[in-house]
């Protein structure tokens, strides 16, 4: 085994670990929002953000946990990772914006609602955690991306020993 192939393996492992960590967090978060009591409570938490009119909070309260579940599952599998990343990454950006708007700009003292009831106050810590998760999503894609595609995108000739091009290297 060469040093390059070791790197390839390491990159792939880190990529999978990042994806798995983010996916597990989202599955855990969704678990706390699925159910007759939990979904209704989640609608209350969404209403607290003052982004949606109170009448429309049930729609995201019912659908969002399922997007989290399916998005997280898509993130785990390499074949669907990019689609999962689009969903999870998009949601994370939206959550960061929502917390920033409601908790920081409007200065509302509200519960985050991120993982269901009792998930702590919305604020900078939640923004930081979401930013970290977003970085995890980005890393899981960057490190898994085949080397050939990366080199081509950068305008270089394809180098067969670039990290990620495991099939060629081995």
């Amino acid at each position: 085994m060469t040093a390059t192939s070791d790197n390839n393996t390491l990159y792939r492992i880190v990529s999978h670990l990042c994806a798995l960590a983010v996916a597990v967090f989202f599955l855990y978060a969704a678990w706390g929002k699925l159910g007759p009591a939990e979904s209704r409570q989640f609608a209350v938490e969404i209403g607290n953000y003052k982004i949606l009119p109170a009448a429309y909070t049930n729609i995201p309260a019912v659908i969002l946990p399922f997007i989290e579940v399916f998005g997280a599952l898509a993130l785990i599998f390499p074949a669907t990772r990019k689609a999962g990343s689009l969903l999870i990454g998009g949601m994370l950006l939206f959550f960061i914006g929502a917390v920033f708007y409601s908790a920081i700009i409007l200065d509302l003292k509200i519960s985050c609602g991120c993982t269901g009831s009792g998930s702590g106050a919305a604020g900078w810590s939640v923004i930081g955690r979401n930013a970290l998760l977003f970085a995890g999503v980005i890393l899981s894609n960057l490190l898994y991306r085949p080397a050939a595609a990366r080199a081509e995108a950068a305008g270089f000739e394809v180098d067969p020993v670039l990290p990620g091009d495991a099939a060629t290297a081995e």
Binding site: V62, I67, V69, K82, A83, G84, L87
Partner: peptide, 22 residues
Amino acid sequence: LAILILIASCGAGAIARSTWYN
């Protein structure tokens, strides 16, 4: 694929609401 997942999530949510939740 992401749009397909979104649609599936909406469907799952609708089913959960009309059966389990309600």
